[in-house]
Amino acid sequence: MDTSRAPTPRDTTPLPRILCLHGGGVTAEVFRMQARSLIKFLPDFRLVFADGPFYCNPGPGIVPVYEDCGPFRRWLRWLPEHPAIDDESAVEEVMYNINTAKEEDEGTGPWVGILGFSQGAKLTSSLLYEQQVRLEKEGKSGTEYKFGVLLAGRSPIVSFSDLSRSSATVAAGAISEGFLFEGVSPHVLRIPTIHVHGLNDAGLHLHRKMLGQYHDPETVTVIEWDGTHRVPIKKMDVEPITDAIYKLAREQGVDV
């Protein structure tokens, strides 16, 4: 076969990077496949996918399409059968896997954002809030993310240190499913975020609760689409999301 006319793959190593966090019962590689349309419409970013630290059964909708892509992983506990773990160890495991994915990536561009689906979206807001509160309380943080993208992110945020521990947040080692907090949260994320809500998602009320309780209304962009609990694939559903990412990134000084 004549490959002389084959296009040269684009070098994405210098592009600004977005950390991508999968949902519960998935893997980094499965999320990469689920997010293929997002990757296609974000050519000026390098998307880097991290694996969760804990093994578990496949999440909803993963079988049969991705059943051969295991072992499947999670970031947090959401079922009683998930082995108990103390909060400090849970934080260490999550951060180890994230930092490993970042260190092993060949890219050289700055880390400008986080994008997560489902449990990964919950983690997105939690990590951004940890960055924000550390800057406020300690004057420094190990990350400089400019924005976050939550695809179907449900309430609440997760506490990653004493700075965010309260009745409004779930502990890193606790079971997050069924968590109930009805008051006004003292933990409000002001780092800009895009919230993508599927109008036919059974967890939509929890996604809206996450938005309303834990995010500053002045710094959020909400995108609704006619979908269930999955990553959008069709161009008509994906383009509004990627357009919003470009707009927000530029507003935050990202060179794209």
Rank of each mutant, 00 (worst) to 15 (best):
D51Y: 01
R46E: 01
D51L: 06
I18E: 14
I39D: 08
P58H: 02
F45W: 08
C20Y: 08
E29D: 15
A50L: 06
L15K: 13
A50T: 06
D51W: 01
A35Q: 00
N57P: 00
L38R: 02
C56V: 12
L21S: 10
F49L: 05
L21G: 10
V48D: 05
T13F: 08
H22K: 10
S37I: 01
R10Q: 12
P7R: 07
P43V: 02
G52Y: 03
R46D: 10
S37G: 15
E29K: 13
T12P: 01
M33F: 04
Y55F: 12
F54L: 12
A28I: 08
G52K: 05
P58R: 12
Q34V: 05
D44L: 09
P60W: 00
V30F: 02
E29M: 11
P9V: 12
D11N: 14
V26E: 10
R36N: 09
C56S: 06
P14K: 06
V30S: 11
P7L: 14
V26T: 15
F31N: 15
P43G: 04
R10N: 07
I62C: 04
T12K: 13
F41S: 06
G52Q: 10
P58A: 13
G61S: 01
L15V: 03
N57W: 00
F54Y: 15
M33L: 13
D51N: 15
T27L: 13
L15T: 01
R32Q: 15
P9W: 04
P7A: 08
L38F: 11
N57G: 03
H22A: 05
L47D: 00
C56I: 02
D51A: 00
F54I: 00
F49H: 05
S37A: 15
L21R: 12
M33E: 14
R46N: 14
V30P: 07
G23C: 12
V48P: 07
I18G: 05
V26Y: 09
F54M: 11
P53F: 03
Q34Y: 02
F45E: 11
G61V: 01
F31V: 11
I18C: 10
P60R: 04
G52C: 05
R36D: 14
D51C: 07
F54T: 07
K40P: 00
R46A: 08
G59T: 00
K40G: 00
D11L: 09
R17E: 09
H22N: 12
C20D: 12
N57I: 00
K40D: 01
R32S: 12
G24L: 14
L42I: 07
G61L: 01
S37E: 13
N57L: 02
D51E: 12
A50G: 08
P9I: 04
L15E: 06
P9T: 11
F49E: 06
G61T: 10
D51T: 01
R10D: 01
R10P: 01
I62A: 10
R17P: 04
R36Y: 07
D11R: 05
F54R: 11
